[in-house]
Computed example of a mutant assay.
Amino acid sequence: MGWFSTTSPSTTSPEPSQDGGFIAPDRSARQQCWEGRDAFFQCLDRNNIVDSVKESDKAQKACAPELKAFEGACAESWVTYFKKRRVFEHQKEQTMKKLAAEGAQPLDPATAGSVNAAGAKGR
């Protein structure tokens, strides 16, 4: 069984190569994974679910077909990564909104480097 498979989602694992490494997914396999991820995340959005790990029962109930397709198209490690990244991105977005509401101003990347460099020179 390969990394990306449409069969049993709980048993997807990387396929070993002759030299003991693992065969990387090709472009079409990655595309299928991303499409499965996007469909699952859209379902989560429609059902107001941010963390599909902590709210696994709710996610399973609301998005079972999408979750199955996502898990079947992606390596298990990718599924875990994407689920965690979704939560991280949501928390980051919420933090940015909170800072903006408190009046925080974004740094200009051109001047931020020189400010950091000037501070480091004085040490």
Rank of each mutant, 00 (worst) to 15 (best):
S10K: 09
D19M: 10
G20Y: 04
G21A: 13
F22L: 04
F22A: 05
F22G: 00
I23V: 11
A24G: 04
A24S: 11
D26G: 07
D26W: 03
Q32P: 02
G36W: 00
R37C: 01
D38G: 08
C43G: 03
C43H: 02
L44W: 01
D45F: 09
R46Y: 13
N47Y: 09
N48I: 14
N48D: 15
I49D: 00
V53P: 02
K58E: 11
A59V: 08
K61C: 13
C63L: 02
C63W: 00
L67F: 06
G72H: 01
A73V: 00
C74V: 01
C74N: 01
C74L: 01
C74F: 01
A75H: 03
W78F: 13
V79P: 00
F82T: 06
K83Y: 05
K83M: 11
K84N: 11
R85H: 09
F88S: 07
H90W: 10
K92G: 04
E93R: 09
Q94G: 05
Q94N: 09
T95M: 10
T95Q: 08
M96C: 06
K97Y: 05
A101E: 07
E102Q: 10
E102Y: 08
E102K: 09
G103E: 03
Q105P: 07
Q105L: 14
P106L: 07
L107D: 10
L107Y: 11
D108C: 13
D108F: 14
P109W: 02
P109A: 03
A112Q: 12
G113D: 13
S114T: 15
V115M: 14
N116Y: 10
A118H: 05
G119D: 07
G119I: 12
A120Q: 13
K121D: 09
R123N: 15
R123H: 14
